[in-house]
């Protein structure tokens, strides 16, 4: 039971990270049905900028929390500029183009951003300064750190803020209007270019926060860290129903938990020694206390993708999604 609880906490933290990155994907998708494949790189830039600022201030004597906040508040505007630039350079000129054209420009921009980051921050693995002291708490036998708790809470707060922004503010109304029908929204006096640019900037700001989260939790930053994170978060967004804010949240948390439980339990579930009558030939080895698992934690990604595929086969537009893109 402790192990299960521990895996649940592990999964929730990982899932919260995915969720915040997924929010960035889903915001952009929600308004122009475009997957911003370069979003992972925005997260990376966020982590890198924060890394630089926090390293600079690490010995300044300021309270650690203040340093991290300063780092984050420097990362956010940089990422917003990057997000805006992405939209202007790579996506806006292609709004009427075939759907796969922006995919290629996104890949191109990813390569460019990665290698610019490589020039600025070197190709080394950067050790993110661990200035906030890690405290470990014991909750019913499971260990949880203060950073984990902050990540999960921050993730919930960000989603709440985003929901409020989309549903309760003037900006949100015009964003939703743009999403529903850009031409009519334009006729109604909504400056749709502005709305779309703002959406990109907000998505990028979320990416910056995610970058700082990842950096301070795992203690490492690298110029290619965005690729895998972006991919997983994209899966999370699709799992929850892309374009849907609570969907990204649900998808992210679920994906994290699935991965953790997968890593934790696939081995036990496929242990051939658990069914000795089926594999008599292995009896001797099993009796010696060995476990012969067909699959192990190495299949955690397979497990996660299988769940994803199963969900999509049953609900072709994700858990909370509604609309379906029609063409490739």
């Amino acid at each position: 039971m402790e192990t299960f609880l521990q895996q649940l906490f592990n999964g929730l933290t990982l899932g919260a990270v995915y969720a915040v990155v997924a929010l960035g994907y889903t915001m952009v998708y929600g308004i122009i049905q475009l997957i911003n494949f370069a979003h992972g790189e925005v997260v990376m830039i966020g982590a890198m900028v924060a890394f630089t600022i926090i390293t600079l201030l690490a010995n300044s004597g300021l309270p650690p929390v203040a340093i991290v906040l300063i780092g984050t508040s420097c990362a956010i505007p940089v990422c917003m500029i990057v997000g805006y630039a992405l939209e202007r350079i790579a996506y806006r000129p292609l709004r009427n183009a075939p759907r796969l054209a922006p995919l290629i420009t996104a890949i191109g921009m990813s390569i460019v951003l990665q290698h610019v980051a490589m020039m600025v921050w070197s190709r080394n693995n950067l050790a993110f300064p661990q200035i906030i002291k890690t405290e470990t708490y014991d909750i019913a036998g499971a260990s949880v750190t203060n950073i984990q708790i902050v990540i999960v809470i921050l993730c919930l707060v960000l989603m709440g803020g985003l929901l409020w922004l989309v549903h309760r503010t003037r900006l949100g109304i015009s964003m939703r209007a743009t999403a529903q029908n850009p031409r009519v929204a334009g006729l109604m006096g909504v400056n749709i270019n502005r709305e779309i640019a703002i959406t990109f900037a907000i998505g990028a700001a979320l990416g910056a926060v995610a970058g700082v989260m990842v950096g301070s939790y795992y203690g490492i930053a690298h110029y290619q860290m965005g690729a895998l994170l972006g991919l997983k978060a994209f899966c999370a967004a699709v799992l929850g129903g892309i374009g849907n804010v609570p969907g990204a949240m649900v998808g992210g948390l679920l994906l994290g938990v699935i991965e953790a439980l997968g890593a934790g339990y696939i081995g036990d579930l496929t242990d051939l020694c658990a069914v000795p009558w089926l594999f008599a030939g292995l009896a001797a080895r099993c009796a010696a206390g060995e476990h012969i698992s067909l699959f192990g934690s190495n299949y955690q990604d397979v497990f996660a993708f299988l769940v994803l595929i199963a969900v999509l086969v049953l609900r072709p537009s994700g858990l909370l999604g509604e609309r379906v893109g029609d063409r490739a």
Binding site: T3, N10, L14, A260, G262, G264, H291, G296, Q300
Partner: peptide
Amino acid sequence: IKVLPREKGTDKTTDWKAVLTKVRR
């Protein structure tokens, strides 16, 4: 010496907690 079942991540894994929790058991 008794060896526990092999656990694996990838060369890009940053979150090892699930795997470690299993090893800890």
